[in-house]
Simulated assay, not measured.
Amino acid sequence: MKPTLLILAAGMGSRYGGLKQMDELGPKGESIIDYSVYDAIRAGFGKVVFVIRSSFAEAFESRFEPRLKGKVETEYVFQELENIPAEFTVPEGREKPWGTGHAMLMAKDVIHEPFAIINADDFYGREAYESAFRFIQQHPDANQYAMVGYPLKNTLSDYGTVSRGVCETDNEGYLKDITERTKIGKENGDIFFYEGENKTRLSGNEPVSMNFWVFKPSFFDHLQNGFNKFMSEKGQELKSEYYFNTCADQTIKSGLATTKVITTNAQWFGITYKEDKPKVQNSIQQLTQQGIYPADLWRP
């Protein structure tokens, strides 16, 4: 059975100012999602599951279905604020869903095979998908996971702060700890993460999670248990979010699973702010000129 690619595409792009999931960046109007799916198919993935919002489902499907039909199996699931277990309620005034862990749970009923999970607005590079596919082929154990890690300094924006999961590994390359830093930025050539009035310098060489992980279906049980605990403790807060990174970290520390950090030389770039767009377009143009991607990605 071929593995699945799960794409988190429900974010509304508040800092970006629009649906960056569908922004045209390639020579024939391709989005970053197009390149992610193209690389996944080349690597050997057989299905793509999109986590989206119902408010833009029609526009999203009408764009991607013609491109992907006959090339890969597709499924669509929806992340909405009210999609939570029946014993919990949405607090008055909450506007956004509950984070990446909540988004991932929307796919638990349609994924029954090993899978990789990615962000819709991050360009991970061909090598990353090939590495993920190899790991799945070589590690069939239900409790062996993996994360594709990138050096922090290569994942920042020139136009504002970013959120990153900063990782610590053991001598064999297995993940020991991951800390979600929601505000990392550059200042006078140095890199800091900010917490209120405090700031802490980082070297820039720390491996970080860009939300490219490899999981087995067993992870959904851990995720659901963790989300239920989160909702019991923080479900009435207006802005708290549940990250699947956090669940993975807790699963590792409890001894229920291991996670190998796959270091990659693949080129990463992404869009957080509108000002990032020209740089991404230029990077894609260079990769196209180098022959890594065809000028018309989905040409028959």
Rank of each mutant, 00 (worst) to 15 (best):
2 K>H: 08
2 K>V: 05
6 L>Y: 04
12 M>R: 15
21 Q>I: 12
23 D>C: 11
24 E>Y: 04
26 G>D: 07
27 P>S: 15
30 E>I: 13
31 S>H: 05
33 I>Q: 06
37 V>P: 01
38 Y>K: 09
38 Y>N: 07
38 Y>M: 04
40 A>C: 07
42 R>H: 06
45 F>R: 04
45 F>N: 06
46 G>E: 06
54 S>Y: 07
55 S>I: 12
63 R>G: 01
64 F>N: 01
69 K>S: 06
73 E>Y: 01
75 E>L: 06
81 L>V: 10
82 E>F: 11
83 N>V: 12
85 P>R: 11
86 A>L: 11
90 V>D: 02
92 E>I: 10
100 T>Y: 05
101 G>P: 07
104 M>E: 00
105 L>Q: 03
107 A>I: 05
108 K>F: 10
109 D>C: 04
109 D>F: 03
113 E>L: 10
118 I>M: 02
123 F>P: 04
124 Y>I: 09
127 E>A: 15
134 R>P: 02
135 F>V: 13
137 Q>Y: 02
137 Q>K: 15
141 D>H: 13
142 A>K: 15
142 A>H: 12
149 G>V: 14
152 L>Q: 04
152 L>D: 00
153 K>P: 00
154 N>Q: 12
156 L>Q: 05
159 Y>T: 00
162 V>I: 14
162 V>R: 12
163 S>Y: 05
170 D>N: 15
171 N>L: 11
175 L>G: 01
186 K>V: 08
187 E>C: 14
187 E>T: 07
191 I>H: 04
195 E>V: 12
199 K>M: 06
200 T>W: 08
204 G>K: 12
207 P>E: 08
208 V>H: 06
212 F>D: 01
214 V>Q: 13
218 S>I: 10
218 S>K: 14
225 N>M: 14
231 M>F: 10
235 G>N: 10
245 N>H: 07
246 T>F: 11
258 T>H: 01
264 T>D: 10
265 N>D: 14
270 G>Y: 03
271 I>L: 12
273 Y>D: 00
278 P>Y: 04
282 N>I: 00
285 Q>R: 15
286 Q>P: 00
290 Q>A: 09
292 I>E: 06
294 P>D: 06
298 W>R: 09
298 W>C: 02
